[in-house]
């Protein structure tokens, strides 16, 4: 019997320190710059949204009033924007698409810096040969990043909802943004957070698949864009559509437009033959009315929650595959 197996328990001179410990500490320390960048991004986004919520909208509204645009009959100058409206537009240009851009940013970072670079340089293996299993290493990376992403995107989403509600009176006057536009829809609900988490999951999986920073970055970005495009293309089909019909002329355009056309006497839907008032043409095509499919604004939350569930399910699947892959490569994860 040699002394090799007499396990000592040294832990000498380890002063208990404040703050995060173990893998959480390692994660925050190694990715310190990413953390700062995320804090900065959230701060800039929050600043833009707070500006829109408060002084930006007030100043723009005052400018509208001065031009007489708040009246029912919109004045001729209302198409031109003054300095206050320009400033508000600028803030919106920053605040609205920010949350749509975050998932792509997260995927690229997670693929390249969080996983790909660590596997490429061997620092992942360095962690796995400490007292840490690959599965715990991956779990810590996902958990810390997810907590920071959820808190940041939640703050931005809440602020975006505030800003959106305050610009409501401006939207009632001029054609402004609509609730169903991609970036607005994403930023006003749970989807911003869900897509950010999808970005993390896709990035991590791409990093594990490619094992090198640059290819992982490309794979993660392309993978996420394809997924985002596919999932948001499903959006209108996640809740029953409402249909408006009218006998003469197209029904009023409200809500998320999904399709319109003409109805024949049998109730069949055909594309609008564009007869206008030509009765002969209408008779020829057997047009007796018009329809319009749409999602009214009241469908916002059902659509939002259905898509969130779908996105989170895809993200969970990506995470599951990532753990399986890691486990298969490194032997039984303990």
């Amino acid at each position: 019997m040699t002394t090799a197996l007499t396990v000592e328990t040294p832990s000498t001179g380890v002063a208990p320190s404040r703050g995060p410990r173990g893998l959480v500490w390692a994660m925050l320390r190694v990715h310190r710059w990413a953390l700062w960048f995320w804090a900065l991004l959230v701060a800039v986004g929050a600043g833009a949204l707070l500006f829109t919520y408060g002084p930006g909208t007030d100043a723009a509204w005052a400018e509208y009033r001065a031009m007489g645009c708040h009246l029912r009959d919109v004045g001729p100058d209302c198409d031109f924007s003054g300095p206050a409206i320009s400033r508000l537009n600028l803030a919106n240009t920053l605040g609205d698409p920010l949350l749509s851009f975050v998932p792509l940013l997260v995927a690229a970072w997670a693929g390249a810096a969080l996983i790909g670079r660590e596997l490429e340089s061997g620092t992942a293996q360095l962690a796995w040969t400490q007292s840490v299993s690959p599965a715990r290493w991956l779990a810590a990376k996902l958990a810390v990043a997810a907590v920071l992403l959820v808190s940041g995107t939640t703050v931005l989403t809440l602020l975006h909802r505030l800003a959106w509600s305050s610009t409501g009176r401006l939207r009632s006057i001029t054609p402004w943004r609509e609730w169903y536009e991609d970036d607005i829809f994403l930023a006003n609900g749970t989807l911003a957070t869900a897509y950010a988490l999808l970005g993390l999951a896709v990035g991590v999986l791409a990093g594990l698949l490619q094992r090198r920073a640059l290819p992982a970055l490309g794979t993660a970005a392309v993978g996420l864009l394809v997924l985002m495009y596919t999932l948001s293309a499903w959006r209108p089909h996640l809740w029953p559509v409402e249909t408006l019909t009218s006998k003469d002329g197209h029904p009023e355009g409200v809500g998320m437009p999904l399709g319109e056309g003409a109805l024949t006497s049998t109730g069949a839907r055909i594309s609008d033959p564009v007869c206008l008032e030509d009765t002969k043409c209408l008779a020829e095509h057997d047009v007796v009315g018009y329809y319009r499919d749409h999602h009214p604004a009241s469908h916002f939350w059902p659509l939002q929650l259905m898509e969130t569930a779908l996105v989170l399910a895809v993200a969970a699947l990506a995470v599951l595959i990532a753990f399986r892959l890691l486990r298969r490569r490194t032997g039984a994860a303990v």
Binding site: G13, G22, W25, G122, A127, S131
Partner: peptide, 26 residues
Amino acid sequence: PLHPQLTVADTLRFGRELNPRRWDAA
């Protein structure tokens, strides 16, 4: 392989944090 952005002291702390039951700082 070591994390290039860490200092020497932080690298040793990395060892301490990831080997909580065994680390001999001395």
